[in-house]
Design a protein around this nucleic acid. Sequence first.
DNA 1: TGTCAACTGTCAGCGGCTGTCACTAGCCTC
DNA 2: GAGGCTAGTGACAGCCGCTGACAGTTGACA
Lengths: 213, 213
Amino acid sequence: MDTASRPGLRERKKQRTRDALLRAALELFTTGGYEATTVDEIAEAADVSQRTFFRYFAGKEDVVFFVQSLAESHFVDAVRARPSHEAPLEALRQAVLQGWDGIGRAVEEIIPTELHLRTYRLIESTPALFATHLRRSAELEEEIAHIIAEREGLDVDADPRPRVAVAVFGGVMRVTERLWCAGQDISVAAIRELTARHLDAVGPALAERWRAG
Amino acid sequence: MDTASRPGLRERKKQRTRDALLRAALELFTTGGYEATTVDEIAEAADVSQRTFFRYFAGKEDVVFFVQSLAESHFVDAVRARPSHEAPLEALRQAVLQGWDGIGRAVEEIIPTELHLRTYRLIESTPALFATHLRRSAELEEEIAHIIAEREGLDVDADPRPRVAVAVFGGVMRVTERLWCAGQDISVAAIRELTARHLDAVGPALAERWRAG
DNA sequence: TGTCAACTGTCAGCGGCTGTCACTAGCCTC
DNA sequence: GAGGCTAGTGACAGCCGCTGACAGTTGACA
């Protein structure tokens, strides 16, 4: 019987409701602004009650970062998969570049890629969202620091290098994201190029004399 | 006549009201928790109406970061005052160490230093406050990047080094803050030592092979 | 088909935050 | 010193994000 298709009717309905809420919310946010959009409007656009919205998402912010979390776990997986002979910073560099390529495919099944890219700018231009984004990044960095420490066989609390290396990397990534969102060219190629350019600048930036460089 | 003392009666009254709100809020936050404390409770503790609270502070969060902003401007001033022959990262290092010493005196005029230090832990342990703290740090970093660029006679948008250097420094500082708040010894001496230790770890952390180090 | 559990809508309410309006009190001029 | 002017305040009403409680509906499964 094909009636017993994989997820079951109930499950599919839930999926559809969540996707509807997700798309409606992001569409409203990116066109009318995050704060100006009320939960009631989102619920109405998705044709459910406000109460139901909060059964699918912990809050207004949660919708925005739902897709972002997909990208994050892709990045974590990529870091874990890097060969252990690579230097820590090199592994992080390759993982983030590689992560960018894989994100598009995974995201597109849920929401249009173009809407996803608009969401990046929304986060960067909305103080409340940007703050949460940074906090999430900090948590991600802590997770990555543990992975790096494990790779190198170190105790993350005894040796400062894992956390410092990840902090340096994270700091550079944040700068990269900001400039990427501020520029015109919002494409994977653009962020790849920017990422490489900024990571290459770390060495020179720590040099004693900039003029001599 | 001494009756014509500098600020005028009205001004002094305002000052007292704001200090009362500040102290009451931080005291309630650090003892009962940030989210569990309502604005009504703060207003009542300071003996004003809720509406008045919002005339002094933009929101609940604003109270928490009021004192923090003092420390920030101290740091900015310290960076500006560093001699121009110092390398950028060295200037930042000296400025932050020097900033920690000066903060105590400036803060103590408004609230007890011990309450101020408790506030750090409050921020670090409250997700909403931590997120805002990171956003504020990001804004501060942008400001510092401009100062560094100016010091070196560079265009901050053409050369990635100023922003990258500040991002690296900021990343390390965030790690330092976290570990400091997590530890038992909340003292200026402790954060100075931690800061130095982590900044010294930047070089080794970027090295190709950690084992060989 | 009937029972159960999951899902949903409705309602009520709390807390953060804002606009409005009338009132008080410091300031300033004559 | 009496007057007006205005900053500061309290009281009230209301919006919005979010939560708990309860009842109705609809898939799942025997």
